[in-house]
Write a protein that binds this DNA or RNA. Structure first.
Lengths: 192, 192
DNA sequence: TTGATTGTCTAGCGATGCTAGGATCGAGTC
DNA sequence: GACTCGATCCTAGCATCGCTAGACAATCAA
């Protein structure tokens, strides 16, 4: 069975290569530039190989999104654990979130803008997505305020962050006032 | 000069027909279904006619977005003027905004999700977009709180609404708690 | 060595946004 | 009223897209 195991290992390596290449290409030239042909050429295989790993382009985007969700969760947790006190923890979390969105625009798009074929807030929601939300909940739950459901509060805070992130990156909000915007958001929403 | 004027009038009518048809098709079957061929067929002209009015598909989306911005501004103003007191005005505004996004998903996408080739928060921002923001500012400015720049506050509130609207419609937020989410948003952000 | 299975590639389908070039029509002139 | 000429529109086609069928090659068991 060793030879079969080797093949499976090689397949897994190639699958990671596909996802990493798609992500790299998307960050470099945008998701429009990520065509199956270009992607196949970069990994030095033919197009049909992609379809032996994923159902289609959407699933590749979804794979990048899952990878991003795991990273976002880690980034958020790291920022929160490095800050002292609830208020500073939330501010650090917000900064880390917006920073992640700014530094990884293509990944962020894969997660929230493009249809990656992922289910949210449902039974079959993939683990990384649930965990990313959990990471937010850990720090945000403690500043929800009395009588306010922590999950509901986290959803709202997250939505606000998401709105700021997307509108800023789409050129809809002037980027220079990002910091005061963030301070205002934390001061108003979080109850410490 | 009468014949030339008539031609210009007919051209204007046809241009409105294109935009209206694109919008209708997008609301019915989504923007993916709005292809230049289908659009041309619906208006009973050939494809190249579209390109005599717009540079490309993006500009058509942009035209729909401008139309939507004007409607959104009107909807927001109507809701605000029908409510008594700052707090209720803001709540009515938020409800109207989210309601608009839910009832006109394709138009909302054209405005904020798809690249319609429109400039925001800049010198050459089209008038309807500026006016939509102004409509928000009129009601939101009065609840910004002391020492907080009204424009900055409006941007933040808008971003929060936008986040709730997009995440809800994308299935990222459970829709059943929309009302309490809205109440929480208004209670926390607005200072009355 | 042979036969079968697994893996990969070439070639192609239908559809996309967009455009070049020819056909057609109608306004203005004799 | 016939004719010219410019504006207007359509047919046909290009390059590219996501995706797939079928031929081919490599690898394994017998």
């Amino acid at each position: 069975m060793s030879v079969q195991e080797r093949k499976e290992r090689e397949r897994a390596v190639r699958e990671r290569l596909i996802v990493a290449t798609a992500r790299e290409l998307a960050e470099q030239q945008g998701w429009d530039a990520v065509t199956t042909r270009r992607l196949a050429e970069r990994i030095e295989y033919s197009q049909p190989v992609l379809y032996s790993h994923f159902r289609g382009k959407r699933e590749i985007i979804g794979a990048v999104a899952l990878e991003g969700a795991a990273e976002l969760a880690a980034v958020v947790r790291a920022a929160a654990s490095a800050a002292d006190g609830p208020r500073e923890r939330v501010a650090a979390l917000a900064r880390a979130y917006l920073d992640f969105a700014e530094r990884n625009p293509a990944v962020y798009d894969a997660m929230f803008q493009l249809e990656g074929g992922l289910a949210f807030a449902a039974e079959d929601t993939p683990e990384p997505l649930k965990d990313a939300f959990a990471a937010l909940l850990e720090s945000l739950g403690e500043v929800a305020g009395d009588g306010v459901h922590p999950g509901l509060f986290t959803e709202l805070f997250w939505a606000a962050l998401h709105g700021v992130a997307t509108l800023t990156r789409a050129g809809r909000l002037p980027p220079e006032y990002l910091e005061p915007r963030l301070e205002l958001l934390v001061d108003r929403l979080a109850i410490t």
